[in-house]
Amino acid sequence: MKKRGKGIASIFYPTGMSGGGDPSNALIKMKLDGTIDLMVGSIDIGQGCKTVLAQLAAEELGLAMEQVTVINDNTDSCPMDTGTFASRVTHSMGNAVVMAARELRQEILELAAADLKTSPVNLTIENGEVKIKQSPDKKISLADLAGKATFGMGKILAGRGGYVKAPTAKDEETGACNPFATAAYATTIAEVEVDTETGQVEVLQLISVYDVGKAINPMLCEGQIDGGSVMGLGMALMENLNPYYPGIDFQPTSFADYMIPVSKDTGKIIAKIIERPSTTSLYGTKGIGEMTANSEAPAIVNAVYNAIGVRITDLPITPEKIIRGLEEK
């Protein structure tokens, strides 16, 4: 018989390394035509940090995406970043990039103010031009400004940014500490169908809502939730490096025996984003890169319990565990 059930899981996850002390530094320099080089040591492992960091720099400097060159490809040119892990890049390096862009922006505004004979506070940058807010026809393009600064003054237009969550002190007796900057929250609802004859569990649907603080690029946030949902499903139902744990016999050596989900295994994935901005980020961001794979396994386990009354306490859920659970009932 096939029985259906629903289960939920609600989770949180810290942004940045637990314990702090994980710096991110960024540099921006302006080229002669007003376009910029953004130098960051963050690694794009697929999550899309080159895109997000370029968006933040472009936003602050009134540039189009096409005017930002991201340089993240070597340790000589880029300032230090701790690395791409601990869901830290959008928050930590994002802060550093915004700081760098604001330093450069201030430099631009001061030069433009002298040129337009006004005060920097009266100026704004839009579409690659610095304009007087009250009379936008009085303006100078970033290209002209960069040219004047370089050839007329021998000046480099550049900005530096650096962010670190201060390392926490820790009380060894109680563990009391302030280990992370902020945390993101999520809830997943899983719907499953359990075949009580074969013990097979099929995930019909995973609905996830993630609080990202602020979505710099909603499409990329959804991408993390989509991918995390399926990795979490793999953890729930398939993946196991030691099928005879704690022994190491019959350890998988290929994708033929270490099963990860394929397109037919996923069921329907629904990813939604809400935004409750963090006070620790200049744009309110939080990191969800890792936690997106955490909410599915418990939701699926709870859904299986809801369907057949068998509570799985050790992962993965195998057909054998389902059948044994049903027999013991």
Partner: peptide
């Protein structure tokens, strides 16, 4: 489409946006 790409492993996207 889901059937056709079932021999292609992807660990990042959950296949959603590929499909």
């Amino acid at each position: 489409v889901t059937q056709a790409i079932s021999g292609n492993l992807c660990r990042c996207t959950g296949y959603v946006k590929i499909i």
